[in-house]
Design a protein around this nucleic acid. Structure first.
Length: 278
DNA sequence: ACTTCGACCTGTTGGC
DNA sequence: TGCCAACAGGTCGAAG
């Protein structure tokens, strides 16, 4: 059976994390930064230890799946990759194998970064955060107002890439990962293999609506089940029973009952209903 | 300019 | 039952 117990941080999970850590961080000052493993996707820069201690966290924002913790000297950029998570522990809590970074606050709370696969990153940008190479080319936020059918339709003209790859392209729109791309395309009734450039504006209208709905629902579920980011179980998780297609290959379509099919697209698993999705 | 693909990493799973 | 290869995933950046 598929394993949805494992956290794969998509945009809703990152947003849930942001909302969880923001109130606890605000009003507290960083006392120390402890780096046990600096080899993440990119090495954690020394500037993190130099620039963070002594400063209060002024804001906790999100851009796509990047968390942005701003302080006076710059911005801490955090990505959770595929297996990362953040939670608060009390100072003195013994770190486990994959607990790579601690941000120790002056009140004794510790923001602990865990990431078994180390696909995530922790960077520090002293200058204008918006011009950072990781952020400056990103497409609009999927839940923002400027992500609409007109935008997607315009961007898609002349594109031969399959629609699933297109909506997962962070230069087109951020925050649509494999799971929710599958779910949104199912909800919109669009075959994942359809070339992006061949889809009408009417169908993009539907797709935009579905992407927003799927992400919003997931954030709502994350928010309602998030107990506490200060305990060790404080990771937001999926509700696999809410997923209509992802991980359900070979099982009946919840809409028509036909068998859901799995294919590979760009080395990623795509599950869809050949009957409902055209 | 666009598209595809390799690389990174480790816990879990499937096959023999 | 045990071992190992394959797999899962986000996304950057190189290659086509």
């Amino acid at each position: 059976m598929h394993s949805k117990e494992q956290l794969l941080p998509e945009l809703p999970e990152v947003e849930t994390t942001r909302r969880g850590i923001s109130p606890i961080l605000s009003g507290s000052r960083v006392r120390d930064v402890i780096i046990r493993q600096k080899k993440l996707r990119w090495p954690i820069p020394a500037s993190l230890r130099k620039c963070l201690p002594g400063n209060s966290i002024d804001s906790v924002d999100r851009r796509g799946k990047y968390l942005l913790l701003a302080c006076k000297t710059g911005t801490l950029i955090i990505h959770l990759g595929m297996s990362g998570s953040l939670r608060f522990v009390k100072e003195g809590t013994v770190p486990q194998k994959h607990d790579h970074v601690d941000i120790v606050m002056n009140d004794g709370m510790v923001l602990r970064y865990t990431d078994p696969r180390r696909f995530g990153c922790m960077l520090f940008e002293k200058d204008d955060i918006k011009s950072h190479p990781l952020l400056c080319k990103l497409g609009p936020e999927p839940l923002g107002e400027n992500f609409d059918a007109t935008y997607l339709f315009g961007k898609s003209r002349g594109r031969s890439a399959p629609i699933k790859a297109f909506v997962m392209d962070s230069n087109i729109v951020v925050g649509v990962g494999n799971i929710y791309a599958n779910e949104a395309l199912f909800m919109a009734g669009i075959n994942p293999k359809t070339k992006a450039g061949r889809i009408s504006i009417g169908r993009y209208e539907r797709l935009v609506q579905c992407i927003k709905t799927v992400l919003k629902e997931a954030i709502t579920r994350g928010g309602t089940t998030l107990k506490d980011f200060t305990d060790s179980e404080g990771k937001p998780g999926y509700f696999s029973q809410q997923l209509q297609v992802y991980g359900r290959e070979g099982e009946p379509c919840m809409n028509c009952g036909n068998t859901l099919k799995e294919i590979r697209q760009a080395q990623r698993s795509t599950v869809y209903c050949p009957h409902c999705q055209r």
